[in-house]
Every structure is written in C-alpha cells, then in structure tokens.
Simulated assay, not measured.
Amino acid sequence: MTGGQETSGTAGDGFGTGDLSVVGRINTASNVTLVCDVVDGPRVVYKPVRGERPLWDFPDGTLAGREVASYLISDALGWGVIPETILREGPYGPGMVQRWVESVDNHTDRGDRLDLVDLCPVGAVPEGFCEVLRAQDDLGNEVSLIHADDPRLQRMAVLDVLLNNADRKGGHALEGTDGQIYGVDHGICLHVEHKLRTVLWGWAGQPVDDVLLADIEKFVAALPGELADRLAPHLADAEIDALGDRAGELLAAPVMPVPRTSRPIPWPAF
C-alpha cells in the first residue's frame, strides 16, 4: 500500500524534489487538493495524504498511492492519458503530486463549443457526440448527458475499465491546449470488487479497437515482472492480481462493458 517516497520526474525541472509553493485550493474536490508551483519549476496539483477523506470501501491513506499506480499503468500501456504523477513530500507531508494540465475552456476560448462531456437538449445530440442518458436539469428541463465520440476519449474509457475507476466525472476529462486529452482524479480506482462508475458509457457494447488490444496484450505480458514491483508500494497484491484479471477478461471478450449496477454514473456527474 502507500508507502515510501517516489521522487522521479523529468530531470532538471524540480518536479520530484523542488519546494512546493501553494497557489490555491480546488474547493470543488472531495479531498484536499492544492495547486502549487514548484520553485523554479512547473505548476502541479498536490494532494496530501493527510487531507484524504475516509471512505467505507477503500483503506484509509491509500488514495495518493492509487493515483500514482494509475499513472504507472497508463504509462506502461503507452497511452499518456494521465499526467505524470508521483508520491513525494510537500508542505503538508507526503502526497500525490501531478503535473498541471493547461486545458481548453470551450465555452469562452472557442465560441461556446461543447466540452468533451456536456449537456444538450433532448433530441439535439450534435454530430460527433454519444448520448449516455436523459435526465432533468436544475430548472426541470429535459437534457441529454453526452460525450464526444473521440478515439482519444475512448482510450480513456478503456483505461477506466482496466483501472476499475469508480469516479470518472465529466470534469475529470480535460482537453489540453497541446491537443491531447487527459484524465485526472484516479484516487478511487483499482479496487478488487467491481466499482466502475463513469460518464463515458457511450461505447457500451462496442468492440475495443485492435490497436488498444495490442497494447493491453503487451501490458499483460509485462505485468508480472518489473511493473508489478513498481505497483507494489501503492497496491495490495490482490489489487494487482485483479488488475491483471480485468485486462485478461478484456482480451478474451474485447467489447466495452455495459452497466452492471444501479449506480453506473458517479454523482455529481461533473
């Protein structure tokens, strides 16, 4: 489980070792989430372990390690979905530190374009988007929850299946100014029991792309060796085994899953 200190990072920019200067706090986050600048280095997100809210179904003090493990898995797959994430010391003790993503604000930067995950009036799903469900907004208007039908976002959805992500909200999928799509907030992942809750259900029942399956096959082959050793400080052995089982099941039946519970979407959805 979470333990030790991981200070790797891009050489020379202080990501792993430079002092953190707190810029502000993200108040919408469930756990203490601080925006920091590394002195003479990059901007980062810092989540101290001591600021984690206890959960009934995840061991206390393990969320930071699950964020690091999720990054290591994304990196091992070669997908680059999760920004570089490490466990290191900060002003409030050890915690997860992740590179900041400069993201596009479609509602201002691009003339009111839709975000990757958004709402639209029922019956008005635009081309290039998938409808997930229909509901009512705060004013009682009928709306559709939609997400972009984008292969970059679909790759994130496949990663969530492997991670058993219990909290893929719309705000956790970011369109970077560099043209990439990034996923953040992976503390509630990698449980041994089925926990998948996501807003990315638009591909349910559809085949997984062959290119992604080839990456997963290589991942399964590599998992029992050095990769498992890198995950071991952050996950229990049973959780690493369950990760391998989920990957193997996806290879055996390469179709995106359909909801299996009465609560398939996290709340709030954004």
Rank of each mutant, 00 (worst) to 15 (best):
residue 55 L to H: 08
residue 62 T to D: 06
residue 63 L to W: 03
residue 79 W to G: 01
residue 1 M to T: 12
residue 255 V to F: 12
residue 152 R to T: 04
residue 40 D to H: 15
residue 74 S to V: 01
residue 220 V to N: 09
residue 254 P to E: 13
residue 5 Q to L: 15
residue 29 A to Y: 00
residue 56 W to C: 05
residue 152 R to P: 01
residue 265 I to C: 02
residue 174 L to P: 05
residue 237 D to M: 15
residue 57 D to Y: 09
residue 152 R to W: 01
residue 143 V to L: 08
residue 4 G to L: 07
residue 213 L to Q: 13
residue 218 K to R: 04
residue 242 A to Y: 12
residue 111 G to K: 05
residue 151 P to V: 12
residue 127 E to T: 12
residue 158 V to W: 00
residue 47 K to T: 05
residue 120 C to H: 07
residue 11 A to T: 08
residue 91 P to Y: 05
residue 30 S to N: 08
residue 11 A to V: 07
residue 249 E to S: 14
residue 179 G to I: 10
residue 76 A to P: 03
residue 222 A to F: 04
residue 225 G to W: 14
residue 20 L to T: 04
residue 184 V to K: 02
residue 197 R to D: 02
residue 186 H to A: 08
residue 18 G to P: 00
residue 44 V to G: 04
residue 116 L to S: 00
residue 140 G to I: 12
residue 162 L to S: 02
residue 206 Q to H: 13
residue 247 A to R: 09
residue 222 A to S: 12
residue 43 R to Y: 11
residue 64 A to G: 10
residue 96 M to P: 00
residue 72 L to N: 12
residue 25 R to S: 04
residue 235 L to A: 05
residue 44 V to N: 02
residue 167 D to F: 13
residue 2 T to P: 03
residue 184 V to F: 02
residue 240 I to Y: 04
residue 222 A to R: 13
residue 31 N to L: 14
residue 166 A to I: 01
residue 215 D to V: 08
residue 12 G to F: 10
residue 182 Y to G: 00
residue 259 P to W: 11
residue 229 D to L: 11
residue 222 A to C: 09
residue 172 H to V: 00
residue 270 F to E: 03
residue 59 P to M: 02
residue 90 G to A: 15
residue 257 P to V: 06
residue 139 L to C: 09
residue 75 D to E: 15
residue 174 L to S: 08
residue 257 P to L: 05
residue 97 V to H: 01
residue 84 E to Q: 15
residue 104 V to P: 04
residue 65 G to A: 05
residue 208 V to A: 04
residue 237 D to K: 15
residue 208 V to N: 05
residue 136 Q to C: 05
residue 147 H to A: 02
residue 170 G to L: 02
residue 53 R to S: 13
residue 123 G to W: 14
residue 165 N to R: 06
residue 134 R to P: 02
residue 108 T to L: 12
residue 241 D to P: 06
residue 80 G to P: 03
residue 245 D to A: 10
residue 16 G to E: 09
residue 263 R to S: 07
residue 4 G to M: 14
residue 79 W to T: 06
residue 96 M to I: 01
residue 251 L to F: 10
residue 199 V to K: 00
residue 147 H to E: 03
residue 203 W to G: 06
residue 113 R to K: 11
residue 249 E to I: 03
residue 268 P to Q: 07
residue 148 A to G: 07
residue 251 L to K: 13
residue 119 L to R: 10
residue 146 I to W: 00
residue 170 G to P: 02
residue 16 G to Y: 04
residue 178 D to M: 09
residue 5 Q to C: 14
residue 66 R to E: 01
residue 233 P to M: 14
residue 54 P to N: 15
residue 189 C to S: 14
residue 53 R to F: 08
residue 164 N to T: 09
residue 71 Y to I: 03
residue 120 C to M: 09
residue 120 C to F: 02
residue 89 E to N: 15
residue 253 A to M: 11
residue 199 V to P: 01
residue 232 A to K: 13
residue 72 L to I: 13
residue 93 G to M: 13
residue 114 L to S: 08
residue 52 E to A: 04
residue 79 W to S: 03
residue 91 P to R: 09
residue 248 G to V: 06
residue 228 A to N: 12
residue 159 L to P: 01
residue 187 G to Y: 07
residue 112 D to W: 09
residue 69 A to Q: 03
residue 9 G to W: 03
residue 175 E to K: 11
